[in-house]
Design a protein around this nucleic acid. Structure first.
Length: 975
DNA sequence: CCTATCTCTTA
DNA sequence: GTAAGAGATAGGT
């Protein structure tokens, strides 16, 4: 090697983990071998090599090597046994891919280097030194901060995912210190991932500032006494040795004895046939094609290489049907093959946020809309002033169109942003608030947009379109024909990760989107989106439409290949406009009632607080569990205290009730005080703030993709946890009222989850009991304890009820014992007895666990999936928790599906009956309506009928569904 | 100002 | 024992 040469060193182990996490899990080839990470690795390597060989880019490697970790045991473990001790084992489906990835590297004809006792980073450091000494340039392909210490005049890094060069200035910009100080910086901060201790309380910012101040770690440790901040000084003195050990852990060894010489790393021309054979063997159809083209190899004449057949057999999933896969080497046109190619193509696409168009003339917008009509598919996103759709003002909108949508290969996406109401910041002395130039008139633009959005022949794609629909509804625009990428992702992978656009983009496209905070700032210095400069807004907004369109291509195909289209089309997509209207309707809340209640609660709490301080003998913050625990258990010495996992005294309501039962006065008063202050702060004080000034009503927001089971959630405000159990709490419900001349109707399913359980587990006694309409808990008690239902003591029924709920929750002796305040052994006996009386339940639970472990998900009676990626965890606690959740999900989720079906059918049913009733709220098993008083009697039976028949015809349940409904002037009396 | 912890409300 | 959202405190940034 000589001056002018250029060595590329790829951090292979880093590549593997990036590839694994960037790509959808459970990608397997037809024989069952998981290959997600291999595929990602090959794509990344191929892209790197093609870019690097492209002489126009400027950097051309003459030498090249891929470096891997040898094993987890290295010399660092002798320095510090805890090093990387917190690392969990790599995911099961990744393990068999390690050896395949080394095969892949060899197939690319690249040196594949590792050394016992050393990490890849040490080898990289060693080769970098050798090359440097020979006068050559070095590029390290990695973004790992541990390697940044190597950066210097001849050595730089390259982050291939972000297409970013990392040199000395970039290191300083990111970490605040030059590369040669990175070791000292890391010694101070430590690294929780690798279990490098560092000094507690010192993060990157503080560390950089200290190094700036003292020059280096040794000087800092020697002069630590000069540091002003007490805690910081003490920590640095106390943990100085830890910092010194940390420095040795992060310092890379550049003197490893290497077997391959620099000369062995010369980059040879690619061996096309060899690589194509390997890729064919892996069934990477689209990469095979690209490589074959680039190397002018005739792929059809090359046999697929046999790779790692043993590992494949070992990891073969029982749920896979190899018969469905296409023969190796042919284009796989099954939905599965298509979905996979779409995902691969999307994952390697490059997104250029500087290529977007800003629309300032109406004619430009018209041209885009015409183009969209021609393609029949357009991604759409609005930009507004608020997250609250009911108060949001439209600021602009973005569109994205795919020029061509080929089944394979790259997607050519064009995207644009139409600013409508961008203003200059109000901080301007000369008035401010004026419109930014280059925007078309709002009215005319919206007319054009309306024509497009309401055209049923054009499919609109959005992310969380319920929000956009509600904003646009204020402008008289209704979206016809749409798909929602958030809902697609939710149907495909509920429980397997987030469904926000940022995480979807990273997961499926390997692309990190511009964050909203980057554009508007955050916290106090945040500016409204309307004040963002238009060019900056274009990059952000158009990217959202671009990404949404790419996601749609991947996810929609997966939906079909996974057989989930009907869940999406029946339970998910049609519910979005229904919820949009419910949110828009809102509910009337009586300010006076809440204000009066607040006053009463304040008085009650103040009186109790005085008594509490008196009994405690000192004044303290009653709302602080920590201070309270110290008073009760340290100062007063009350017995029976338990600690929370962080070592604090536990002061839960249950613990305080126990103390009260033992005759102590103070704990009782604390419980009462907590109830009053909770009601006041969370409900009576907070709810008036949610009354919309325009509508004078409260508009909650329903999240469609928030839970693993398929339930909705509600926020801002949450109307699904309004108190009902206590008399004091129920007063809050009296503030939820109907408009004059109207009534509220509450309709709720009776025991829906137990009915679902009876159906899915097929329990004869339960189905019979529900058919007969008997008291289900009393029946259970009678079966279990042999007590006749007539004259049954309430305590016996209470226990049976707790057990029934426990079953739904995936029962454990520990939990049941807690619930009933009995010994764990006694709870265990109850469970045993229950399973003896209802053996079908036990069978159901076991079968559900097996199903969850096999597939990684469980299914509701309507086909919705709930994923539990941690169900195979080696940690028994984590595993048990996931098992209980998996047992609960089909029950809770099927019930959630039932009410979703009812909600989708409710509006047409009401309309057909000529009713003016409006659906306002959903509380898991309850629907709240508002209707003219005169109409109530007529529509209650209709509502009940729609709800009771909601499972039909998809599922004919073995148990009837029962709904109770009632009308009143407020929610408390209607319920 | 942001985040983690604890507690409490619902189905 | 399941599923959520939210408020107050405490501790560090």
């Amino acid at each position: 090697m000589k001056k002018g040469d250029h060595l590329f060193l790829v951090d292979g182990s880093g590549y593997i983990f990036r590839a694994y996490h960037a790509l959808p899990p459970l990608t397997r080839k037809s024989d069952g071998l998981p290959v997600g990470a291999v595929s990602g690795f090959c794509n990344m390597l191929w892209k790197l090599l093609s870019d690097a060989r492209d002489t126009s880019v400027g950097v051309t490697p003459t030498h090249f090597a891929v470096i891997f970790d040898y094993s987890s045991k290295t010399f660092r473990n002798e320095l510090y046994p805890e090093y990387k001790a917190n690392r969990s084992a790599p995911p099961e489906d990744l393990v068999p891919q390690f050896s395949v990835i080394r095969e892949a590297t060899r197939a690319f004809d690249l040196p594949c280097i590792e050394a016992e006792g050393f990490e890849a980073d040490d080898l990289i450091a060693t080769y970098a030194r050798l090359a440097r000494e020979a006068g050559a340039e070095v590029t390290v392909i990695s973004s790992d901060k541990d390697l940044m210490q190597l950066v210097g005049p001849q050595v730089s890094m390259y982050d291939s995912m972000k297409d970013r060069q990392i040199g000395v200035p970039e290191v300083i910009e990111k970490w605040g210190v030059p590369p040669e100080k990175m070791i000292d910086l890391q010694a101070l901060t430590g690294d929780s991932v690798d279990n490098v201790p560092g000094i507690p309380g010192i993060g990157p910012k503080t560390a950089a500032q200290l190094i700036e101040q003292f020059g280096d770690l040794d000087t800092l440790l020697a002069r630590a006494g000069e540091i002003k901040q007490n805690k910081r000084r003490e920590n640095i003195i106390e943990f100085a040795d830890k910092a010194r050990i940390s420095r040795e852990l992060v310092r890379l060894r550049d003197d490893v004895e290497v077997t391959e010489k620099l000369e062995d790393l010369v980059l040879n021309p690619l061996d096309g046939p060899k690589l194509v054979a390997f890729l064919k063997g892996m069934e990477f159809t689209s990469l095979t094609r690209r490589v074959a083209e680039a190397t002018e190899t005739d792929a059809s004449n090359i046999d697929a290489a046999q790779v790692a057949v043993d590992a494949a057999a070992e990891m073969r999933g029982p749920d896979l049907d190899p018969g469905q896969a296409a023969p190796v080497g042919e284009i796989d046109d099954t939905p599965q093959g298509l979905a996979k190619r779409r995902a691969e193509a999307a994952g390697s696409a490059k997104i250029d946020t500087s290529a977007y168009e800003t629309l300032s003339e109406l004619s430009e917008l018209k041209a885009w809309c015409d183009q969209a009509r021609e393609t029949g598919l357009v991604a759409f996103d609005t930009e507004t002033t608020s997250l609250d759709a009911m108060q949001a003002e439209l600021v602009g909108f973005s569109l994205a169109i795919a020029e061509t949508a080929p089944d394979t290969g790259e997607l050519k996406v064009r995207a644009c942003y139409a600013p409508l109401a961008h203003t200059n910041g109000a901080g301007d002395l000369l008035g401010g608030g004026g419109a930014q130039p280059g925007q078309m008139p709002m009215r005319a633009a919206l007319d054009e947009l309306k024509a497009l959005l309401e055209d049923p022949a054009v499919l609109k794609v959005g992310q969380n379109l319920k929000y956009d629909m509600l904003v646009l509804a204020q402008h008289g625009i209704t979206i016809e024909s749409f798909d929602d990428t958030m809902l697609l992702s939710y149907v495909l992978e509920a429980g397997a990760g987030g469904h926000g656009m940022d995480s979807l983009s990273e997961r499926w496209l390997g692309h990190k989107t511009i964050s909203y905070k980057d554009v508007t700032g955050s916290g106090k210095s945040a500016i409204p989106f309307a004040e963002v400069q238009i060019d900056r807004a274009t990059a952000y907004a158009a990217e959202d439409a671009d990404v949404t369109l790419r996601l749609w291509h991947v996810l929609k195909q997966r939906l079909v290949s996974d057989g989930l289209a009907s869940v999406y089309e029946r339970l998910e997509r049609p519910l979005a406009p229904v919820l949009m209207r419910m949110e828009g309707n809102g509910i009337r809340v009586d300010r006076q009632i809440l204000s009066r209640l607040s006053g009463e609660l304040a008085q009650g709490a103040a009186a109790l607080e005085a008594e509490i301080q008196d009994l405690a003998g000192e004044s303290f913050n009653v709302g602080s569990p920590r201070q309270l625990g110290e008073i009760l258990f340290d100062k007063m010495g009350l017995p029976g205290g338990t600690k929370t996992k962080t070592g604090q005294w536990s002061t839960t309501a249950q613990a305080l009730e126990d103390l009260a039962a033992a005759g102590h006065e103070l704990p009782r008063k604390i419980v009462d005080w907590r109830q009053l202050t909770k009601l006041k702060s969370t409900y009576t004080d907070a709810l008036p703030g949610f009354i919309n000034p325009r509508t004078q009503r409260v508009h909650t927001s329903f999240a469609m993709a928030a839970t693993t089971t398929g339930r909705l959630s509600s926020s801002d405000p949450n109307i699904q946890n309004i108190p009902v159990r206590t008399a004091a709490g129920r007063k809050i419900r009296t503030a939820f009222i109907a408009e004059p001349g109207n009534v509220l109707i509450s309709a709720d399913y009776s025991q829906i989850e137990l009915r679902v359980l009876a159906h899915v587990a097929n329990i004869p006694q339960l189905t019979q009991a529900f058919a007969d309409g008997v008291d289900i808990h009393a029946m259970t008690a009678s079966e279990m304890f042999g007590v006749p239902v007539e004259g049954m003591p309430s305590e016996v029924r209470r226990r049976a009820k707790a057990i029934n709920f426990g079953i739904i929750y995936g029962i454990s002796a520990f939990g049941l014992a807690n619930q009933l305040s009995i010994e764990r052994s006694e709870a265990g006996d109850y469970i045993k007895k229950y399973f003896e009386r209802f053996p079908g339940i036990k069978d159901y639970m076991e079968a559900t666990k097996v199903e969850a472990k096999e597939h990684g998900y469980v299914t509701t009676i309507f086909g919705r999936r709930a994923h539990y990626p941690e169900i195979r965890s080696s940690n028994p606690q984590v595993r048990a928790f996931n098992e209980r959740a998996a047992i609960n999900a089909p029950i809770q989720g099927s019930a959630a599906d039932v009410i979703r079906r009812a909600m989708v059918r409710m509006e047409p049913a009401l309309e057909k009956a000529g009713a003016n009733a409006r659906m306002l709220l959903q509380v898991h098993d309850e629907l709240i309506f508002e209707a003219p008083e005169a109409e109530a009697e007529k529509i209650i039976p209709l509502i009940v009928e729609v709800m009771e028949n909601a499972a039909m015809p998809a599922v004919d349940m073995a148990v009837p569904l029962k709904v109770d409904a009632r009308a009143a002037l407020n929610w408390d009396e209607a319920h």
